[in-house]
């Protein structure tokens, strides 16, 4: 991968919030690259600034110092080629719009003509298995289905980078497994680059081609680990592989070290 040019390039990113008790350093210094077509999971202990990092990457928050570049262009506002799926599906869909209109609104904002919009919506909903919910309202759907709508909206937006912020933290285990497989499928079908933020170690190893482990706050990269699991993943057989267990144990230990504030160690 080293010979390719990175799609997303993060350099010495630092974010400090000012609070009543003086400045709080949320992100110390983070540097990493994401290459085209990768599926990178970012995992870290809770409260380590994952959401802050993600907001800086997606242009929703400006970093205190350092830079985020998408295809060599500095990210200062939400870029066209990026879509975000948020954790709180119940609050990221417009409750006054139908599923179809939720998926279609970003396309409308981009000036996509009605007929084409309708086709794109249809394709995206088929992709996430919601073609029958087109005219429903989000609140008429279960949590897992609502998150599928959010994924369909991101897919229909045809981004180059898809950023997902702990998207399955609030759904039940069974739905979660289904949605994980959905993310893998969308990633393969569309050739999109995915950045998946999670606090779930198993999830990060199961999903990712690469796992970035974050340290405790002030956050830096604890380790950048390539996941050498077979390309075809399956909830039962992949998770039963000895290599899966090894990687999982390794990530787990690193996160524990990160929590204690120890320096990173090699694999």
């Amino acid at each position: 991968m080293a010979d390719k040019t990175p799609l997303l390039s993060v350099r010495e990113l630092k974010k400090t919030y000012s609070s009543a008790n003086g400045p709080v350093e949320a992100i110390g210094s983070i540097t990493f690259d994401v290459f085209p077509g990768e599926l990178v999971c970012i995992v870290g202990p809770s409260g380590c600034g994952k959401t802050t990092l993600l907001k800086c990457l997606s242009g929703l928050l400006s970093p205190t110092s350092g830079s985020v570049q998408l295809e060599g262009t500095e990210v200062t506002a939400p870029p066209k080629k990026m879509a975000v799926v948020f954790q709180e599906y119940g609050r990221s869909l417009y409750p006054w719009l139908t599923v179809e209109d939720n998926v279609g609104l970003p396309l409308k904002a981009r000036g996509v003509a009605k007929a084409e919009r309708s086709r794109t919506i249809e394709r995206a909903l088929v992709e996430v298995g919601l073609e029958n919910a087109r005219h429903k309202y989000p609140w008429q759907l279960s949590g897992g289905m609502q998150q599928r709508v959010a994924i369909a909206r991101a897919v229909a937006y045809e981004p180059e980078v898809l950023i997902m912020d702990e998207p399955f933290a609030a759904v039940d285990a069974q739905t979660r497994a289904d949605l994980e497989d959905l993310v893998r499928r969308v990633w393969k079908d569309l050739g999109v680059t995915v950045l998946f933020v999670t606090h779930d170690i198993d999830e990060s190893v199961y999903l990712g081609e690469r796992v970035l482990m974050l340290s405790n706050s002030p956050t830096s990269i604890q380790e950048d680990l390539a996941i050498d699991l077979p390309d075809e993943r399956d909830q039962l057989s992949t998770r039963a592989l000895p290599r899966f267990t090894e990687l999982r144990t390794h990530v787990y230990e690193q996160i524990q070290r990160a929590k204690r504030g120890e320096v990173p160690s090699a694999v």
């Binding site: 929703l60 975000v84 990221s92 417009y94 409308k108 904002a109």
Partner: peptide
Amino acid sequence: VLTDTSRSFRIRGALKYRY
């Protein structure tokens, strides 16, 4: 969250107020 959603999908201007 909805504000962030609207910003990240670049829903602006009249459309932002209408929808």
